[in-house]
């Protein structure tokens, strides 16, 4: 109970067709803007991007501002024809999405055949490492990108 929540930070992993942003810490009034900036920067930097994965396992509390930012990222991803995935959601986040009626919006993205394969590559650590090494020259972004 006395453990301080980990400081908010983001780790971005880029693969050929996908970007994965790992979120650690509370997503709230003070921090949510950082996530929006990062996601927006990735969306605009990669015109050919197909999938944006937000890795949520490390997320602490999400307040209304945090949810608002997730909705904004969803809207921008949609506009850029990028599929947004909220991966490894903790139960608390699922509950928030379910109460607010947004779970369906975040999970029922129009799926195309290609989506599943990209999802697989992004979520398999080995594949991610391999692809990340290939793209490193174009600019690694996270301090511990390979997790």
């Amino acid at each position: 109970m006395t453990i301080l929540p980990p400081a908010f930070h983001l780790t971005t992993v880029e693969t050929r067709h996908a970007v994965r942003i790992e979120i650690t810490g509370d997503l709230d009034y003070d921090t949510a803007d950082l996530l929006l900036e990062e996601a927006t920067a990735r969306l605009s930097a990669r015109p050919g991007l197909e999938d944006l994965h937000l890795h949520c396992a490390g997320i602490g509390m999400v307040d209304s501002m945090g949810l608002s930012i997730l909705l904004m990222i969803g809207r921008r991803a949609n506009a850029a024809r990028v599929r947004l995935h909220l991966d490894d959601r903790p139960a608390q986040l699922d509950r928030l999405l379910s109460i607010t009626g947004t779970l369906e919006y975040f999970t029922a993205q129009p799926a195309t055949g290609a989506a599943a394969t990209h999802l697989d590559t992004a979520e398999s650590p080995a594949a991610a490492t391999a692809t990340e090494r290939r793209t490193r020259a174009s600019g690694p972004t996270g301090p511990d990108a390979t997790t």
Partner: peptide, 11 residues
């Protein structure tokens, strides 16, 4: 239950 208002086009 229902969808929040003000952010999504369809609720």
């Amino acid at each position: 239950r229902g969808t929040l208002v003000g952010a999504l086009p369809d609720i």
